[in-house]
Design a protein around this nucleic acid. Structure first.
Length: 926
RNA sequence: AGGCGCGUAGCUCAGGGGUUAGAGCACUUGCUUGACAUGCAAGGGGUCGGUGGUUCAAUUCCACUCGCGCCUACCA
C-alpha cells in the first residue's frame, strides 16, 4: 500500500525546509535551457528590513509567475538583490550608536560607514532566509546589493555620462530640507498632511507717510527673512502702494511692495509677505521681482545671525513664540486665529521640513521623461491594470528636476571633486577627474561629501543587476525584463525612473509590463505599522506563534511605549489563541487568491485558515489516491483500461480547469487562477470524482477499476503540476509519490512541464452524463437534507416522466447512481400511474419521488414544495412578460428568445409537477 | 483644486448588457458515510449605494448624486 509512505496528516513544517534545500542545492533556480527568456527583477527590499506582509504578497506573485514560466519551458531568471536604503539604514545604525552613547559625528565618517557595513554583513542576510522560507525561487547565486562594487560602478558611470550631457547639474535652489536629518530631500520624500496651526496677521508700516499693510502668515518667524510684500497687480485696493516701501518690524529693514500674479486677492488681506529663502512661492515671486533672498535659518532650523541678536540661536518654534511676542509688544501684531493648513514632513524622520536655500545636485528630468512617456503611450511598456498609465502620465508630464544629493554618509558618494576655488570636476574616480580636466597630481582636490539618493541606484536596477556597463550575456539575454511586479506607492520613486534610465542607457524599456498591485492592510483596512501594533509577520503565519510571543513582538521597541497596553489588549482580543501554523503554501495561496485588481487588500486570517484546509484536503485526497494504487511502484497504469463515464468526465473537466488557470496566469489574475484550481480540486475532483471512483474501485469490474486507478493518478499528477507555482511545497511532496505512478520520471515538479490542457480531452458526452447524474443525486440529496433523513438510510425512489434519454441513463449509470444517491430500489412509474404520497424533486423532465410511508413528514414536504412553487411562479411570470413583449421578440437575438421560451416551458412543467405533488400531500399528516 | 478607484450576502471579495447574481468565512440543521470533523450533506441570507438616461433588456453602459479611500498639487 503506497499510501503508507505519505504521512497521515499534512504537516507543512516536515516537508518545506527539505524541499527547498533540495531545489537550491540542485541549482534549479538558475536560468536553464534555451527557451524564451522570462525575467523579473525583485524590487530590492531594504537591507535593514525583515520580510513584511507586503513583501510576502509581492514575492508570492513573482514566484508564482516565475515558477509557472519555468515549467512552461521559459529560460527564467528571478533576479534577487537588496537595497542599501540610505536614510533608513543610516537611521538604524545611528540609533544603535545612540544606545551606546555615541553619535555618528563623534565616530567620524569612515568609522561610521565601517559600522554600517559590519551591521549589514551580520544582519543583511536575514531577508534572504525569509524569502527561502516562503519558497521564493530566486537565483540566489546572482545576489546583488545596490552598494556592491559592480552596482557602484554602474552608478558612477551613469552619473558621469548624465553630467557630460548636462542632464545632471549642480545648482543653488530652494530644496525641501530636513532639519533633523540635516539633508535635502526630493519632492517625493515629502509627505504633506493637514494639521492645526495658527494664522497670524502682521502689520508692516509704510516707510513714507502713514499707515501700514497687513499680511497673514502661518510661520511668523520667517518674517526675519522677508525681503518684500506682494499684492495682486489688479487689486485696486493696493495699486497705489506698489513700488512703495515698508519697514520690516524687528529688523528695521526697508522692503518694497511689489505686484505679482501669484497673490490671491481673496485670501486674507490680499497682501502677502515675501520670504524668498524660506518659501517656494515666495522664491518665485522674489525671482520675478528682483527681491534678494535672506536666509534666516541654520541647517538645524535655528535662527542664524542674519537676524537681530535677540533671536539668534533660537529653535524655529521657540523663535516663532519670541517673534510673535515681540511683535505684539510693539503693536505690530494685528490678530491671530486658529488655522488648519498643510504641513510638509520628511517621510523618514517625520520632522517638519523647511524650504532651504542650498547647493545640490539635480537630474534634469524633462528630457529623460519625454521618451519614457512615449514608451508607455505606444505600448512598449504596458501597465496592468491599465488605468495606472493615467497616473504615470500625469506625474511625468509635470515632472520637476530631481534633487539627487543627500547630506548623508551611507550611500554612493558623488563622483565630483572641488578645487580650492570651488570649481567642480566630475569623473569616474579622482584620477579620471584630474585627467579629464588636465589637473596636475598635486593640485588639491576635495571630494564632494554628499551621497546620492538611494533611488538613483534603484533606477538602474534592471540593468545594473545584469552586469551593466559590462556587456554581459545575461544583459543581452534578459534585458528588457518581462514584467515588473510592484506596489503603486513607488510608481514615481522607482518605476518611472527605471523607465527613464533604461531608455537612456540601454536604449530600450526595462520591462514590457508593469503589474501594479495594492497594499496589504489589516482586516479592518488599516495600514499595517509598528505603531498601530497590527503588524503580522508572514513567518508567524507559516510557523505559528503563541499569544504571548505575539504580544511581545508587537509591543517591544515602540517609538511610543504608551501605546503598548492598547496594542496588547487588541492583540489578545483578536488572537486569543495566538496564530496557528498554516504553512507557507496556505499563506501563498491566500496571497494569490487575494491578488485581485483593487487598490488595497484587507488581509483576513480566516482566509488563510481556509486555504490551509485546502492543503489538507489535497493531502488527504492524494493519500486516498495512493492507497488505491496496485502494489508495486513504478508500474505505469495499464493503457488498455477502458475509462468509464466518470473517468472521461473528470479528464474533460480538468482540461477546462487548466485552460482557465493558464489564461488567468497569463493575464496576471492569480486570484482567478487559484480559484479555478481550488474549485476543480475540491468541488469536482474530491466531491464527485473520488466518490464515483470509490464505487468503481469497490465493484467487480477489474478493467473499470484499473481505469479509475489510472485516472485518479493521472488527474492528481496534473493537478499537482498546475498548482505548483502557487503551492510549491505540498505539490512537490505529493508529486514525488504520485509522479512515478503516473509514469513520470522527472526529478522535481518544479522542473516538470506545466500541464497542457490539450492533453485532457474534452468529452461532451461524458460531461452531459455526469451532469445528469449530479442533477439526479442532488435531487435526492435535497429531499434527504431538507427532511433530515440520515445519509445512511437507503431510500426507495420512484421515477415518473422523463424522456427516453433519462431512462437510458438510469440504466447505463445505475452502477454509479444507486450508491451515490443512496438509493435502495429504483422503480419506473408509468406516466399515467397514480403515484403514492411522496417527497419529490424535479430533475429535468424527470420526477423523483420518495414514498412517504412513515419516513417523511408531509407538512415539512408541503412547506418545501410551496417555497419551490413560489420561486417558479415568479420566474415564470418574468418569462411570460418578456415573451409578451413584441419588441423583445423582434429585437433580441433569436437564441436569447429561444432560451426564454425554453425556460418558460420548463417552468410550466415544473409548476405542474409541483402542484400535483402538493395536491397529493394536501390531506396527509398534520 | 485636479486625477484615480471603490460601494454586490453579516464579514472579506469575485463577476458581468440576456434563463435562477457567485465564492470563502460566519450562521442554521443533519451526519464519527472506509482520504479528510482542517471533514461530508442540506439550508437561510442580496430591491448589486441613490436618482435619471440609453436599450427589446441595466446589478453590468452613460450622466448626475451620496458615502468612502488613495494619489498629485497647494493660499501666505
Amino acid at each position: 500500500m503506497n499510501g503508507r509512505v505519505l504521512g497521515e496528516r499534512y504537516r507543512p513544517a516536515e516537508i518545506e525546509g527539505e524541499a527547498y534545500r533540495r531545489w537550491e542545492r540542485a541549482g534549479w533556480f538558475a536560468p536553464r535551457g534555451d527557451g524564451p527568456p522570462f525575467c523579473i527583477v525583485i524590487p530590492p527590499p531594504n537591507v535593514t528590513g525583515s520580510l513584511h506582509m507586503g513583501h510576502a504578497f509581492q514575492d508570492t506573485v513573482m514566484d508564482a509567475l516565475t515558477r509557472y514560466h519555468r515549467m512552461r519551458g521559459d529560460c527564467t531568471l528571478w533576479q534577487p538583490g537588496v537595497d542599501h536604503a540610505g536614510i533608513a539604514t543610516q537611521m538604524v545604525v545611528e540609533r544603535q550608536l545612540e544606545a551606546e552613547g555615541l553619535s555618528r559625528r563623534e565616530l567620524g565618517r569612515e568609522e561610521f560607514v565601517r559600522r554600517v557595513w559590519a551591521w549589514k554583513e551580520s544582519s543583511g542576510g536575514r531577508i534572504g532566509d525569509q524569502l527561502r522560507r516562503l519558497g521564493a525561487s530566486l537565483d540566489f547565486s546572482r545576489d546583488c546589493f545596490t552598494l556592491d562594487e559592480a552596482r557602484s560602478r554602474a552608478v558612477r558611470e551613469v552619473f558621469v555620462r548624465l553630467h557630460e550631457e548636462g542632464l545632471i547639474y549642480r545648482g543653488q535652489r530652494l530644496v525641501n530640507w530636513d532639519p533633523v536629518l540635516q539633508t535635502a530631500l526630493s519632492d517625493l520624500e515629502v509627505v504633506s498632511s493637514e494639521e492645526d496651526g495658527h494664522l497670524w496677521r502682521l502689520r508692516y508700516p509704510l516707510v513714507d507717510g502713514d499707515g501700514a499693510v497687513e499680511v497673514d502668515t502661518t510661520r511668523p518667524e520667517t518674517m526675519l527673512g522677508d525681503t518684500g510684500v506682494a499684492v495682486h497687480p489688479e487689486d485696486e485696493r493696493y495699486r497705489q502702494l506698489v513700488g512703495r516701501m515698508v519697514r520690516l518690524p524687528l529688523t528695521g529693514r526697508e522692503i518694497p511692495i511689489v505686484a505679482d500674479e501669484a497673490v490671491d486677492p481673496e485670501f486674507g488681506t490680499g497682501c502677502v509677505k515675501v520670504t524668498p529663502a524660506h518659501d517656494f512661492t515666495d522664491y518665485e515671486i522674489g525671482r520675478r521681482n528682483g527681491l534678494p533672498s535672506i536666509n534666516a535659518l541654520t541647517p538645524r532650523a535655528r535662527i542664524n545671525d542674519a537676524a537681530p541678536p535677540a533671536f539668534v540661536g533660537l529653535d524655529r518654534f521657540d523663535a516663532r513664540k519670541a517673534v510673535v511676542e515681540a511683535l505684539k509688544e510693539m503693536g505690530a501684531l494685528a490678530g491671530v486665529k486658529k488655522h488648519r493648513h498643510v504641513i510638509p514632513r520628511g517621510d523618514r524622520s517625520q520632522a517638519v521640513l523647511e524650504p532651504f536655500l542650498t547647493d545640490q545636485w539635480y537630474v534634469r528630468a524633462a528630457p529623460l521623461a519625454e521618451p519614457a512617456i512615449a514608451a508607455v503611450e505606444d505600448g512598449r511598456v504596458r501597465f496592468v491594470p491599465e488605468n495606472w498609465a493615467a497616473t504615470y502620465f500625469e506625474w511625468m508630464r509635470n515632472i520637476e528636476d530631481w534633487c539627487i544629493s543627500r547630506q548623508l554618509w551611507w550611500g554612493h558618494r558623488i563622483p565630483a571633486w572641488y578645487g580650492e576655488d570651488g570649481e567642480v570636476f566630475v569623473g569616474r574616480n579622482e584620477a579620471e577627474a584630474r585627467r579629464r580636466h588636465k589637473l596636475p597630481d598635486d593640485y588639491p582636490l576635495r571630494r564632494d561629501d554628499d551621497v546620492l539618493d538611494t533611488w538613483f541606484s534603484s533606477a538602474l536596477w534592471p540593468f545594473s543587476t545584469l552586469g551593466w556597463p559590462e556587456q554581459t550575456p545575461e544583459l543581452k539575454r534578459f534585458y528588457p525584463g518581462t514584467v515588473l511586479v510592484t506596489g503603486f506607492d513607488i510608481l514615481f520613486f522607482w518605476v518611472a525612473r527605471m523607465i527613464m534610465m533604461g531608455l537612456k542607457f540601454m536604449g530600450d524599456v526595462p520591462f514590457r509590463e508593469v503589474y501594479v498591485h495594492g497594499l496589504i492592510r489589516d482586516h479592518e483596512g488599516q495600514k499595517m505599522s509598528k505603531s498601530r501594533g497590527n503588524v503580522i509577520d508572514p513567518l508567524d503565519l507559516i510557523d505559528g506563534v503563541d499569544l504571548d510571543s505575539l504580544v511581545e513582538k508587537r509591543t517591544a521597541g515602540l517609538m511610543q511605549p504608551q501605546l503598548a497596553p492598547a496594542i496588547e489588549r487588541a492583540t489578545r482580543k483578536q488572537f486569543p489563541e495566538g496564530i496557528p501554523a498554516f504553512g507557507a503554501d496556505a499563506v501563498r495561496f491566500s496571497f494569490a487568491a487575494m491578488a485581485s485588481t483593487g487598490q488595497d487588500i484587507r488581509y483576513d486570517l480566516d482566509r488563510t485558515a481556509g486555504y490551509r484546509n485546502f492543503c489538507t484536503k489535497l493531502w488527504n485526497a492524494a493519500r486516498f489516491v495512493l492507497m488505491q494504487q496496485p502494489g508495486s511502484e513504478g508500474v505505469p497504469p495499464s493503457q488498455d483500461a477502458c475509462p468509464g463515464p466518470a473517468d472521461r468526465w473528470i479528464v474533460s473537466r480538468l482540461g477546462k480547469a487548466l485552460k482557465a488557470t493558464a489564461e488567468a496566469l497569463d493575464g496576471y489574475r492569480l486570484d482567478l487562477a487559484s480559484r479555478a484550481m481550488y474549485d476543480f480540486v475540491w468541488r469536482e475532483y474530491c466531491d464527485w470524482y473520488l466518490e464515483l471512483a470509490k464505487i468503481v474501485l469497490a465493484g467487480d469490474n477489474a478493467q473499470a477499476a484499473a481505469a479509475a486507478q489510472s485516472t485518479l493518478v493521472r488527474v492528481l499528477e496534473a493537478v499537482l503540476r498546475a498548482l505548483h507555482p502557487i503551492m510549491p511545497f505540498i505539490t512537490e511532496a505529493l508529486w514525488q509519490r504520485t509522479a512515478p505512478l503516473a509514469g513520470s520520471t522527472g526529478e522535481s515538479v518544479m522542473i516538470a512541464p506545466w500541464p497542457n490542457s490539450g492533453d485532457f480531452a474534452e468529452d461532451r458526452q461524458a460531461e452531459a452524463e455526469i451532469e445528469w447524474l449530479q442533477g439526479f443525486v442532488l435531487g435526492i440529496r435535497q429531499i434527504r437534507g431538507e427532511l433530515d433523513l440520515p445519509p445512511g438510510r437507503r431510500l426507495e425512489v420512484l421515477v415518473q416522466g422523463g424522456r427516453q434519454e433519462d431512462r437510458e441513463r438510469m440504466e447505463s449509470l445505475s452502477g454509479l447512481l444507486y450508491p451515490m444517491a443512496g438509493i435502495d430500489k429504483l422503480t419506473l412509474l408509468a406516466a399515467d400511474a397514480e403515484a403514492p404520497p411522496a417527497a419529490s424533486a424535479l430533475h429535468g423532465e424527470l420526477k423523483l419521488l420518495t414514498p412517504l410511508a412513515g419516513v417523511i413528514d408531509p407538512a415539512a414536504e408541503r412547506a418545501r414544495l410551496g417555497k419551490l412553487r413560489a420561486q417558479a411562479e415568479k420566474s415564470l411570470q418574468a418569462a411570460e412578460k418578456k415573451l409578451a413583449n413584441p419588441q423583445f421578440l423582434d429585437k433580441a437575438p433569436p437564441d436569447v428568445v429561444q432560451g426564454v421560451h425554453d425556460r418558460r416551458e420548463e417552468l410550466k412543467r415544473d409548476l405542474q409537477s409541483l402542484r400535483e405533488q402538493l395536491e397529493r400531500l394536501k390531506n396527509l399528516g398534520t
